[in-house]
Nucleic acid binder design. Structure first.
Length: 291
DNA sequence: CGTTTTTGACCTGCGC
DNA sequence: GCGCAGGTCAAAAACG
């Protein structure tokens, strides 16, 4: 989403005007940033709206549809007793106090800590537990948990000292290429870069697949925003005990509103990607007859 | 030299 | 009460 922000260098054709265009370029970049933020906001709202509609249809009550599992250990402040990469189990264990990160509209009447989980596919050889989400984080601890050989890293928001948000990052026990970041709390300040509304997709030239997870009252759903065979959104995973959640996710992914917004977003990203336009120009050039 | 990361120790809650 | 496990603290090390 933030590919533009990582391309500060102007195209070669613009270099000759660089000195006189600096202000204008700055304005253009600012406008682009605003546009990207707006796009992201619309996407988020679309998902939130569809999700809320589905939740309202399925369970008018705040109580989750699944009975509370036999949790063997529950801490006072830990809404996710065992992340451990086993999203399905972890989600069900945290069912009673977890809510969606999509929108504040879905907060219940009681005060609860907002918890959301984001799964990001990374290079398996990448040993850093870094999830680029646009915020600044300070690591304050690391622990090896019982049911996952990969260590869990603990981060606090470093942008604002008073910000209560914490983040836990751990590789999935099942798939070491999947990084699971669990966010607790809400930022009490704006995002410093506005680049973190979605995890690291398209910010690395599209080489890294992108996925977002929706965790609301239990089940974790992962949407793969990269292309699949049909060019649509694919449901990467959903909790075993939450077939409804998976179906809901597929509904959202296939809804006209979501698809339209997604297509617009992808089109914008592609047309702004210099590599894409270069490749397109090269392809067109190949089709031209030689004179 | 200030900031950030690492890592062992400590704290707390829960089950037995 | 004890042991276990997750979470946090803080001194030391590393880094820029």
């Amino acid at each position: 989403m933030a590919a533009e922000t990582e391309r500060p260098d102007p195209p070669a054709s613009d270099c000759r005007m660089a000195s006189s265009m600096s202000d204008e370029q700055a304005k253009t970049l600012e406008a682009k940033l605003t546009q990207i933020s707006e796009d992201n906001r619309r996407l988020t709202e679309t998902i939130a709206y569809l999700y809320a509609s589905q939740i309202a249809r399925q369970s008018p009550d705040d109580a989750p549809d699944s009975p509370p599992p036999p949790v063997s250990r529950k801490r006072r402040d830990s809404l996710e007793p065992s992340n451990s990469g086993d999203d399905a189990n972890a989600s069900s264990k945290a069912a009673h106090a977890v809510e969606s990160s999509l929108s504040d509209e879905y907060e219940g009447t009681c005060r609860r800590i907002k918890v959301s989980r984001v799964c990001t596919r990374i290079d398996p050889s990448d040993t850093t537990l870094a999830v680029k989400d646009g915020y600044q984080w300070r690591k304050y601890g690391q622990k090896v948990t019982r049911d996952n050989p990969s260590p869990r890293a603990y981060f606090r928001c470093a942008y604002a000292p008073s910000c209560p948000v914490k983040k836990k990052v751990q590789r999935s026990a099942e798939d070491s290429s999947v990084l699971v970041a669990t966010y607790e709390g809400e930022h009490n300040h704006p995002c410093p870069t506005r680049a973190g509304e979605l995890p690291s997709c398209a910010t690395r030239g599209g080489s890294v697949p992108c996925s977002i997870s929706i965790n609301s009252s239990g089940p974790t759903i992962t949407l793969d925003l990269t292309k699949n065979g049909s060019g649509g959104v694919r449901v990467l995973e959903a909790a075993e005990e939450a077939p409804d959640a998976k179906r809901l996710c597929q509904e959202i992914a296939s809804s006209p509103e979501f698809r339209t917004a997604l297509v617009e977003q992808m089109a914008r990203s592609l047309t702004r990607d210099s590599k894409f336009t270069d490749a397109l120009a090269a392809a067109i050039l190949k089709q031209l007859p030689d004179y």
